[in-house]
Design a protein around this nucleic acid. Structure first.
Lengths: 182, 182
DNA sequence: GAGCGCTCTTGAACGGCAATCAAGATCGGT
DNA sequence: ACCGATCTTGATTGCCGTTCAAGAGCGCTC
Protein backbone atom coordinates (compact mmCIF):
# COMPACT_ATOMS: atom_id res chain seq x y z
CA UNK A 1 0.00 0.00 0.00
CA UNK A 2 2.08 2.87 -1.22
CA UNK A 3 -0.33 5.67 -1.84
CA UNK A 4 -2.87 4.03 0.43
CA UNK A 5 -1.14 4.90 3.68
CA UNK A 6 -0.69 8.45 2.46
CA UNK A 7 -4.34 8.53 1.52
CA UNK A 8 -5.26 7.39 5.00
CA UNK A 9 -3.23 10.14 6.63
CA UNK A 10 -4.71 12.70 4.29
CA UNK A 11 -8.25 11.75 5.26
CA UNK A 12 -7.38 11.87 8.94
CA UNK A 13 -5.85 15.32 8.72
CA UNK A 14 -8.77 16.52 6.64
CA UNK A 15 -11.12 15.18 9.29
CA UNK A 16 -9.19 17.00 12.04
CA UNK A 17 -9.45 20.26 10.13
CA UNK A 18 -13.17 19.67 9.68
CA UNK A 19 -13.69 19.14 13.39
CA UNK A 20 -12.19 22.56 14.12
CA UNK A 21 -14.02 24.18 11.19
CA UNK A 22 -17.35 22.75 12.31
CA UNK A 23 -16.84 23.96 15.84
CA UNK A 24 -15.81 27.47 14.80
CA UNK A 25 -18.52 27.82 12.14
CA UNK A 26 -21.21 26.86 14.64
CA UNK A 27 -19.78 28.76 17.61
CA UNK A 28 -18.64 31.97 15.93
CA UNK A 29 -20.21 31.76 12.49
CA UNK A 30 -18.76 31.24 9.04
CA UNK A 31 -18.19 34.91 8.29
CA UNK A 32 -16.52 35.54 11.65
CA UNK A 33 -14.15 32.63 11.13
CA UNK A 34 -11.16 33.56 9.00
CA UNK A 35 -9.05 30.95 7.29
CA UNK A 36 -6.15 32.20 9.40
CA UNK A 37 -7.98 31.69 12.69
CA UNK A 38 -9.19 28.28 11.55
CA UNK A 39 -5.61 27.35 10.72
CA UNK A 40 -4.36 28.59 14.08
CA UNK A 41 -7.07 26.61 15.89
CA UNK A 42 -5.98 23.51 14.00
CA UNK A 43 -2.32 24.24 14.66
CA UNK A 44 -1.17 24.61 11.07
CA UNK A 45 0.01 27.45 8.86
CA UNK A 46 -2.63 29.65 7.33
CA UNK A 47 -2.31 28.30 3.82
CA UNK A 48 -2.10 24.61 4.71
CA UNK A 49 -5.89 24.36 4.58
CA UNK A 50 -5.76 25.02 0.86
CA UNK A 51 -3.95 21.74 0.36
CA UNK A 52 -7.02 19.88 1.66
CA UNK A 53 -9.77 22.20 0.47
CA UNK A 54 -10.20 24.24 -2.68
CA UNK A 55 -11.45 27.35 -0.88
CA UNK A 56 -13.45 28.46 2.13
CA UNK A 57 -16.78 27.43 0.59
CA UNK A 58 -15.33 23.98 0.07
CA UNK A 59 -14.66 23.75 3.82
CA UNK A 60 -18.23 24.83 4.50
CA UNK A 61 -19.50 22.20 2.10
CA UNK A 62 -17.60 19.44 3.87
CA UNK A 63 -18.84 20.65 7.27
CA UNK A 64 -22.40 20.64 5.97
CA UNK A 65 -22.04 17.09 4.67
CA UNK A 66 -20.66 15.95 8.02
CA UNK A 67 -23.44 17.61 9.99
CA UNK A 68 -26.16 16.30 7.70
CA UNK A 69 -24.84 12.74 7.76
CA UNK A 70 -24.72 12.79 11.55
CA UNK A 71 -28.20 14.29 11.79
CA UNK A 72 -29.69 11.72 9.45
CA UNK A 73 -28.15 9.03 11.66
CA UNK A 74 -29.66 10.57 14.78
CA UNK A 75 -33.04 10.88 13.09
CA UNK A 76 -33.60 7.14 13.12
CA UNK A 77 -34.06 7.35 16.87
CA UNK A 78 -37.16 9.54 16.48
CA UNK A 79 -38.38 8.25 13.12
CA UNK A 80 -41.07 6.16 14.79
CA UNK A 81 -42.25 8.95 17.13
CA UNK A 82 -45.49 10.89 16.49
CA UNK A 83 -45.37 13.39 13.64
CA UNK A 84 -45.57 16.41 15.92
CA UNK A 85 -42.63 15.24 18.00
CA UNK A 86 -40.61 14.70 14.86
CA UNK A 87 -41.24 18.28 13.74
CA UNK A 88 -40.20 19.61 17.13
CA UNK A 89 -37.05 17.46 17.00
CA UNK A 90 -36.13 18.76 13.55
CA UNK A 91 -36.67 22.39 14.58
CA UNK A 92 -34.52 21.84 17.68
CA UNK A 93 -31.75 20.29 15.61
CA UNK A 94 -31.83 23.15 13.11
CA UNK A 95 -31.90 25.75 15.87
CA UNK A 96 -28.65 24.38 17.24
CA UNK A 97 -27.22 25.00 13.77
CA UNK A 98 -28.89 28.40 13.29
CA UNK A 99 -25.63 30.02 12.24
CA UNK A 100 -25.01 27.31 9.65
CA UNK A 101 -28.57 27.64 8.33
CA UNK A 102 -28.18 31.39 7.87
CA UNK A 103 -24.79 30.93 6.26
CA UNK A 104 -26.14 28.41 3.75
CA UNK A 105 -28.90 30.79 2.71
CA UNK A 106 -26.45 33.67 2.45
CA UNK A 107 -23.73 31.79 0.55
CA UNK A 108 -26.11 29.97 -1.81
CA UNK A 109 -26.51 33.18 -3.78
CA UNK A 110 -22.75 33.45 -4.33
CA UNK A 111 -21.51 29.88 -4.53
CA UNK A 112 -23.07 27.43 -7.01
CA UNK A 113 -21.73 24.52 -4.95
CA UNK A 114 -23.46 25.72 -1.79
CA UNK A 115 -26.61 26.41 -3.77
CA UNK A 116 -26.54 22.85 -5.08
CA UNK A 117 -26.12 21.47 -1.56
CA UNK A 118 -28.98 23.63 -0.37
CA UNK A 119 -31.23 22.34 -3.15
CA UNK A 120 -30.28 18.77 -2.34
CA UNK A 121 -30.93 19.28 1.35
CA UNK A 122 -34.38 20.62 0.62
CA UNK A 123 -35.07 17.63 -1.61
CA UNK A 124 -34.17 15.26 1.23
CA UNK A 125 -36.00 17.17 3.96
CA UNK A 126 -39.12 17.79 1.90
CA UNK A 127 -39.18 14.18 0.72
CA UNK A 128 -39.22 12.91 4.29
CA UNK A 129 -41.72 15.56 5.34
CA UNK A 130 -43.97 14.71 2.43
CA UNK A 131 -43.95 11.04 3.30
CA UNK A 132 -44.74 11.80 6.94
CA UNK A 133 -47.68 14.01 5.94
CA UNK A 134 -49.03 11.43 3.49
CA UNK A 135 -48.86 8.79 6.19
CA UNK A 136 -50.70 11.17 8.53
CA UNK A 137 -53.56 11.24 6.07
CA UNK A 138 -53.16 14.53 4.25
CA UNK A 139 -54.89 14.29 0.91
CA UNK A 140 -52.74 13.97 -2.17
CA UNK A 141 -53.99 17.15 -3.82
CA UNK A 142 -52.06 20.10 -2.47
CA UNK A 143 -49.65 17.88 -0.55
CA UNK A 144 -46.62 19.45 -2.24
CA UNK A 145 -47.85 22.93 -1.43
CA UNK A 146 -48.49 21.94 2.17
CA UNK A 147 -44.97 20.56 2.44
CA UNK A 148 -43.49 23.82 1.14
CA UNK A 149 -45.59 25.87 3.55
CA UNK A 150 -44.41 23.72 6.42
CA UNK A 151 -40.76 23.94 5.40
CA UNK A 152 -40.89 27.68 4.83
CA UNK A 153 -42.56 28.18 8.19
CA UNK A 154 -39.87 26.17 9.93
CA UNK A 155 -37.23 28.26 8.18
CA UNK A 156 -39.02 31.40 9.32
CA UNK A 157 -39.06 30.13 12.90
CA UNK A 158 -35.32 29.59 12.69
CA UNK A 159 -34.27 32.91 11.21
CA UNK A 160 -36.59 35.21 13.16
CA UNK A 161 -36.16 35.33 16.90
CA UNK A 162 -39.52 34.30 18.32
CA UNK A 163 -40.47 33.37 21.84
CA UNK A 164 -41.14 29.77 22.77
CA UNK A 165 -44.89 30.47 23.06
CA UNK A 166 -45.09 32.07 19.63
CA UNK A 167 -43.25 29.14 18.11
CA UNK A 168 -45.58 26.66 19.73
CA UNK A 169 -48.66 28.59 18.63
CA UNK A 170 -47.44 28.62 15.04
CA UNK A 171 -46.59 24.92 15.07
CA UNK A 172 -50.02 24.11 16.52
CA UNK A 173 -51.82 26.17 13.92
CA UNK A 174 -49.79 24.51 11.20
CA UNK A 175 -50.46 21.02 12.51
CA UNK A 176 -54.24 21.64 12.66
CA UNK A 177 -54.15 21.76 8.89
CA UNK A 178 -52.72 18.24 8.77
CA UNK A 179 -54.78 16.48 11.41
CA UNK A 180 -58.07 17.95 10.22
CA UNK A 181 -59.05 16.73 6.74
CA UNK A 182 -59.76 19.40 4.11
CA UNK B 1 -30.03 81.28 6.32
CA UNK B 2 -26.42 80.40 6.78
CA UNK B 3 -26.41 76.74 7.60
CA UNK B 4 -29.75 76.21 5.88
CA UNK B 5 -28.41 76.52 2.35
CA UNK B 6 -25.58 74.22 3.29
CA UNK B 7 -28.06 71.80 4.78
CA UNK B 8 -30.03 71.85 1.56
CA UNK B 9 -26.98 71.01 -0.52
CA UNK B 10 -26.00 68.29 1.87
CA UNK B 11 -29.39 66.58 1.56
CA UNK B 12 -29.27 66.84 -2.22
CA UNK B 13 -25.84 65.26 -2.46
CA UNK B 14 -26.85 62.58 -0.01
CA UNK B 15 -29.90 61.85 -2.15
CA UNK B 16 -27.74 61.58 -5.27
CA UNK B 17 -25.48 59.08 -3.57
CA UNK B 18 -28.53 57.10 -2.46
CA UNK B 19 -29.86 56.93 -6.02
CA UNK B 20 -26.64 55.31 -7.19
CA UNK B 21 -26.43 53.07 -4.13
CA UNK B 22 -30.00 51.87 -4.57
CA UNK B 23 -29.43 51.09 -8.24
CA UNK B 24 -26.17 49.20 -7.59
CA UNK B 25 -27.50 47.30 -4.55
CA UNK B 26 -30.52 46.10 -6.51
CA UNK B 27 -28.73 45.43 -9.80
CA UNK B 28 -25.49 43.89 -8.55
CA UNK B 29 -26.23 43.22 -4.90
CA UNK B 30 -24.92 44.74 -1.69
CA UNK B 31 -21.95 42.43 -1.29
CA UNK B 32 -20.89 42.85 -4.92
CA UNK B 33 -20.96 46.63 -4.60
CA UNK B 34 -17.79 48.01 -3.05
CA UNK B 35 -17.67 51.46 -1.52
CA UNK B 36 -15.06 52.30 -4.17
CA UNK B 37 -17.29 51.29 -7.07
CA UNK B 38 -20.23 53.14 -5.53
CA UNK B 39 -18.07 56.25 -5.22
CA UNK B 40 -16.89 55.92 -8.81
CA UNK B 41 -20.48 55.52 -10.03
CA UNK B 42 -21.41 58.68 -8.13
CA UNK B 43 -18.35 60.52 -9.43
CA UNK B 44 -16.66 61.19 -6.11
CA UNK B 45 -13.56 60.00 -4.31
CA UNK B 46 -13.76 56.68 -2.52
CA UNK B 47 -13.90 58.11 0.97
CA UNK B 48 -16.30 60.98 0.29
CA UNK B 49 -19.23 58.68 1.05
CA UNK B 50 -18.12 58.54 4.65
CA UNK B 51 -18.89 62.23 5.02
CA UNK B 52 -22.57 61.48 4.38
CA UNK B 53 -22.86 57.99 5.86
CA UNK B 54 -21.30 56.37 8.88
CA UNK B 55 -20.47 53.12 7.12
CA UNK B 56 -21.70 50.76 4.42
CA UNK B 57 -24.56 49.45 6.54
CA UNK B 58 -25.70 53.03 7.05
CA UNK B 59 -25.97 53.42 3.26
CA UNK B 60 -27.98 50.20 3.11
CA UNK B 61 -30.25 51.48 5.86
CA UNK B 62 -30.96 54.71 3.96
CA UNK B 63 -31.65 52.77 0.76
CA UNK B 64 -34.05 50.51 2.64
CA UNK B 65 -35.91 53.50 4.08
CA UNK B 66 -36.21 55.05 0.62
CA UNK B 67 -37.48 51.85 -0.95
CA UNK B 68 -39.95 51.17 1.85
CA UNK B 69 -41.35 54.72 1.80
CA UNK B 70 -41.86 54.52 -1.94
CA UNK B 71 -43.47 51.08 -1.69
CA UNK B 72 -45.88 52.18 1.03
CA UNK B 73 -46.92 55.07 -1.22
CA UNK B 74 -47.53 52.73 -4.16
CA UNK B 75 -49.50 50.38 -1.92
CA UNK B 76 -52.38 52.82 -1.62
CA UNK B 77 -53.21 52.11 -5.24
CA UNK B 78 -53.96 48.45 -4.48
CA UNK B 79 -55.15 48.83 -0.88
CA UNK B 80 -58.79 48.50 -1.94
CA UNK B 81 -58.23 45.48 -4.22
CA UNK B 82 -59.21 41.93 -3.15
CA UNK B 83 -56.98 40.33 -0.54
CA UNK B 84 -55.53 37.77 -2.92
CA UNK B 85 -54.50 40.46 -5.40
CA UNK B 86 -52.82 42.41 -2.62
CA UNK B 87 -50.75 39.37 -1.65
CA UNK B 88 -49.70 38.85 -5.26
CA UNK B 89 -48.77 42.53 -5.52
CA UNK B 90 -46.65 42.39 -2.38
CA UNK B 91 -44.84 39.25 -3.53
CA UNK B 92 -44.16 40.88 -6.92
CA UNK B 93 -42.77 43.99 -5.22
CA UNK B 94 -40.54 41.96 -2.96
CA UNK B 95 -39.35 39.79 -5.82
CA UNK B 96 -38.10 42.87 -7.63
CA UNK B 97 -36.04 43.57 -4.52
CA UNK B 98 -34.96 39.97 -3.97
CA UNK B 99 -31.31 40.97 -3.61
CA UNK B 100 -32.22 43.55 -0.98
CA UNK B 101 -34.38 41.05 0.88
CA UNK B 102 -31.55 38.52 1.03
CA UNK B 103 -29.10 41.20 2.08
CA UNK B 104 -31.31 42.35 4.94
CA UNK B 105 -31.60 38.82 6.26
CA UNK B 106 -27.86 38.30 5.92
CA UNK B 107 -26.78 41.62 7.46
CA UNK B 108 -29.34 41.56 10.28
CA UNK B 109 -27.17 39.03 12.09
CA UNK B 110 -24.15 41.34 12.00
CA UNK B 111 -25.56 44.85 12.20
CA UNK B 112 -27.90 45.81 15.07
CA UNK B 113 -29.19 48.75 13.01
CA UNK B 114 -30.19 46.50 10.11
CA UNK B 115 -31.71 44.03 12.55
CA UNK B 116 -33.78 46.82 14.04
CA UNK B 117 -34.98 47.92 10.60
CA UNK B 118 -35.85 44.32 9.79
CA UNK B 119 -37.89 43.99 12.97
CA UNK B 120 -39.68 47.26 12.24
CA UNK B 121 -40.44 46.20 8.70
CA UNK B 122 -41.96 42.97 9.91
CA UNK B 123 -44.06 44.90 12.41
CA UNK B 124 -45.44 47.10 9.62
CA UNK B 125 -45.98 44.29 7.13
CA UNK B 126 -47.51 41.91 9.64
CA UNK B 127 -49.73 44.65 11.04
CA UNK B 128 -51.20 45.33 7.63
CA UNK B 129 -51.48 41.64 6.87
CA UNK B 130 -53.19 40.98 10.16
CA UNK B 131 -55.74 43.69 9.53
CA UNK B 132 -56.44 42.37 6.05
CA UNK B 133 -56.95 38.84 7.39
CA UNK B 134 -59.23 40.04 10.19
CA UNK B 135 -61.29 41.96 7.66
CA UNK B 136 -61.47 38.80 5.53
CA UNK B 137 -63.12 37.05 8.43
CA UNK B 138 -60.34 34.95 9.93
CA UNK B 139 -61.21 34.20 13.54
CA UNK B 140 -59.32 36.04 16.23
CA UNK B 141 -57.86 32.93 17.86
CA UNK B 142 -54.74 31.93 15.99
CA UNK B 143 -54.76 35.06 13.87
CA UNK B 144 -51.21 35.98 14.89
CA UNK B 145 -49.96 32.52 14.09
CA UNK B 146 -51.70 32.59 10.73
CA UNK B 147 -50.06 35.93 9.95
CA UNK B 148 -46.62 34.54 10.77
CA UNK B 149 -47.22 31.47 8.62
CA UNK B 150 -48.25 33.68 5.74
CA UNK B 151 -45.25 35.98 6.09
CA UNK B 152 -42.79 33.12 6.44
CA UNK B 153 -44.26 31.43 3.40
CA UNK B 154 -43.91 34.60 1.34
CA UNK B 155 -40.31 34.89 2.47
CA UNK B 156 -39.74 31.29 1.46
CA UNK B 157 -41.21 31.97 -1.96
CA UNK B 158 -38.78 34.84 -2.36
CA UNK B 159 -35.59 33.13 -1.29
CA UNK B 160 -36.12 29.77 -2.96
CA UNK B 161 -36.39 29.73 -6.72
CA UNK B 162 -39.77 28.18 -7.48
CA UNK B 163 -41.69 28.02 -10.71
CA UNK B 164 -44.71 30.22 -11.28
CA UNK B 165 -47.04 27.20 -10.96
CA UNK B 166 -45.54 26.11 -7.66
CA UNK B 167 -45.85 29.61 -6.28
CA UNK B 168 -49.49 29.85 -7.32
CA UNK B 169 -50.27 26.45 -5.85
CA UNK B 170 -48.74 27.44 -2.54
CA UNK B 171 -50.57 30.78 -2.46
CA UNK B 172 -53.84 29.04 -3.26
CA UNK B 173 -53.37 26.48 -0.52
CA UNK B 174 -52.52 29.24 1.91
CA UNK B 175 -55.54 31.33 0.96
CA UNK B 176 -57.91 28.38 1.42
CA UNK B 177 -57.14 28.59 5.10
CA UNK B 178 -58.38 32.17 5.19
CA UNK B 179 -61.49 31.98 3.06
CA UNK B 180 -62.74 28.79 4.71
CA UNK B 181 -63.68 29.29 8.37
CA UNK B 182 -62.00 26.99 10.86
C1' DG C 1 -11.47 92.47 1.28
C1' DA C 2 -8.58 90.10 4.62
C1' DG C 3 -8.98 86.70 7.84
C1' DC C 4 -11.50 83.01 10.19
C1' DG C 5 -13.93 78.81 10.79
C1' DC C 6 -16.98 75.45 9.24
C1' DT C 7 -18.10 72.26 5.46
C1' DC C 8 -16.62 69.27 2.24
C1' DT C 9 -13.19 66.59 -0.71
C1' DT C 10 -9.31 63.96 -1.56
C1' DG C 11 -4.89 60.95 -1.98
C1' DA C 12 -2.66 58.01 0.84
C1' DA C 13 -2.52 54.74 4.13
C1' DC C 14 -4.04 50.87 7.56
C1' DG C 15 -5.51 46.42 8.95
C1' DG C 16 -7.95 42.27 7.70
C1' DC C 17 -9.38 39.12 4.46
C1' DA C 18 -9.28 34.98 0.93
C1' DA C 19 -6.28 33.18 -2.04
C1' DT C 20 -1.63 32.35 -4.43
C1' DC C 21 3.33 31.41 -5.05
C1' DA C 22 7.71 29.62 -4.73
C1' DA C 23 10.84 27.27 -1.81
C1' DG C 24 11.73 23.86 1.21
C1' DA C 25 10.70 19.77 4.43
C1' DT C 26 9.02 15.00 4.87
C1' DC C 27 8.67 10.37 3.60
C1' DG C 28 7.61 6.04 1.00
C1' DG C 29 9.53 3.30 -2.80
C1' DT C 30 13.71 1.91 -5.46
C1' DA D 1 21.53 6.87 -0.86
C1' DC D 2 18.53 8.82 -3.93
C1' DC D 3 14.16 10.33 -6.34
C1' DG D 4 9.70 11.94 -6.75
C1' DA D 5 5.34 12.70 -4.85
C1' DT D 6 3.20 14.64 -0.91
C1' DC D 7 2.86 18.03 2.32
C1' DT D 8 4.09 22.53 4.84
C1' DT D 9 5.26 27.14 5.24
C1' DG D 10 6.59 32.37 5.07
C1' DA D 11 6.00 35.83 2.04
C1' DT D 12 3.11 38.05 -1.18
C1' DT D 13 -0.95 39.70 -3.92
C1' DG D 14 -5.14 42.05 -4.55
C1' DC D 15 -9.45 43.53 -2.76
C1' DC D 16 -12.15 45.26 0.87
C1' DG D 17 -14.13 48.68 4.44
C1' DT D 18 -12.49 52.25 6.93
C1' DT D 19 -9.44 56.06 8.77
C1' DC D 20 -6.19 59.98 8.60
C1' DA D 21 -4.18 64.20 7.64
C1' DA D 22 -4.00 67.83 4.50
C1' DG D 23 -6.08 70.93 1.91
C1' DA D 24 -9.95 73.18 -0.99
C1' DG D 25 -14.38 75.85 -1.09
C1' DC D 26 -17.34 79.07 0.90
C1' DG D 27 -20.02 82.12 3.95
C1' DC D 28 -19.55 85.16 7.68
C1' DT D 29 -17.45 89.17 10.41
C1' DC D 30 -14.69 93.12 11.16
Amino acid sequence: MPANKRHQDREEKRAELLVEARRLFIEHGYENTSMASLAKAAGVAGNTIYWYFADKDDVLLAVLDDVLTEALGDYERVATAPLEDQVVWVVRQLQQMQRLVNTVHARAAHSPAIDEWHTGFHAIAEGMFREALAQAGVDHAGLDAEVKIGVFTVEGLLTHGLSQEEQQAICRRLAEQWTRPT
